[in-house]
């Protein structure tokens, strides 16, 4: 049975889609069969980040409504053959999804793939609830600032009460904390919450810390998930996240600001 992982946050703009794309591609590169589903109906972005926006013919809503088969709607990634994308509809809204039909689609996908990554829309309304309802695991994407942390806390409450696992009284959703846009320098200057602060408030296990990086924006615009940029800190950090998801123990990197070299210290550079 496939592992259904929802990438969620509550707050918008914290890096859910970037993380979904990077983690999905990373898992596929490790030889797993992965499907990425864009649940953000009406605000389709995942196809852009994955660089397959010109190949969208049918979408998730078409499949839900029986207007297309799964095979017609799934887009195979050109870089890794074991990765597929199920894009969202751009012309519909989030009410187009309902629990029964989404459950049916996930069940069908579960027979074909090892990992189903659900890229959740922001907010706590129907769309976000639909994305997390069937999840086995949740990657709670959080920026190190108070409003993002509070929204993540709210979503964690939803995961514990509004999911299928909660309703059926099954083992709760496994929660992971993914801290994105982390800047150790600003933490040291007291402008940003530290990893410890966020862990203390949310008290869920840390899956990864992605440093703030120019590479992320570049990767998004190019439609190349940042994990492919193996030179960048962000790319390396996402690789660590994938390894941890696969059960490996990997030390956390990029948590402290780089020390200035002796020359720059002397000459104030």
């Amino acid at each position: 049975m496939a592992r259904i992982i929802v990438v969620t946050s509550g707050k918008g703009g914290v890096g859910k889609t970037t993380s979904s794309a990077a983690i999905g591609l990373g898992l596929a590169l490790k030889g797993n069969k992965v499907v990425l589903i864009d649940f953000d109906i009406g605000l389709r972005n995942l196809d852009l980040i994955m660089g397959c926006e010109r190949r969208v013919v049918y979408d998730f809503v078409n499949v839900i409504n029986g207007e297309a088969t799964l095979n017609q709607a799934l887009i195979k990634d050109k870089r890794v053959s074991s990765l597929s994308i199920l894009p969202a509809s751009q012309t519909r809204d989030k009410d187009a999804l309902n629990k029964e039909n989404v459950g049916k689609v996930l069940e069908d996908l579960g027979k074909l793939y090892d990992y189903i990554i659900c890229d959740s829309p922001a907010g706590i309304e129907a769309g976000a609830m639909m994305a997390l309802y069937y999840a086995d695991e949740a990657i709670v994407t959080t920026n190190p600032e108070v409003s993002s942390v509070r929204d993540s806390d709210r979503i964690l409450g939803m995961l514990a009460s509004r999911s299928r696992r909660a309703e059926l009284g099954l083992e709760p959703i496994k929660e992971h904390l993914l801290l994105t846009r982390y800047s150790p320098k600003r933490v040291e200057e007291g402008e940003m919450l530290s990893v410890e602060d966020v862990e203390d408030i949310l008290s869920i296990p840390l899956l990864g810390v992605i440093p703030e990086s120019q590479a992320v924006l570049k990767a998004s615009n190019a439609g190349e998930p940042v994990i492919l940029d193996t030179e960048s800190d962000a790319g390396k950090a996402y690789q660590d996240v994938v390894d941890r998801l696969l059960g490996e123990t990997v030390d956390f990197r990029f948590l402290v600001a780089e020390k200035k070299g002796i020359f720059s210290r002397i000459f104030g550079g």
Binding site: R150, D151, L156, A160
Partner: peptide, 8 residues
């Protein structure tokens, strides 16, 4: 048992 989250 367990944390009581924002909004609960």
């Amino acid at each position: 048992r367990g944390q009581i989250r924002s909004g609960q």
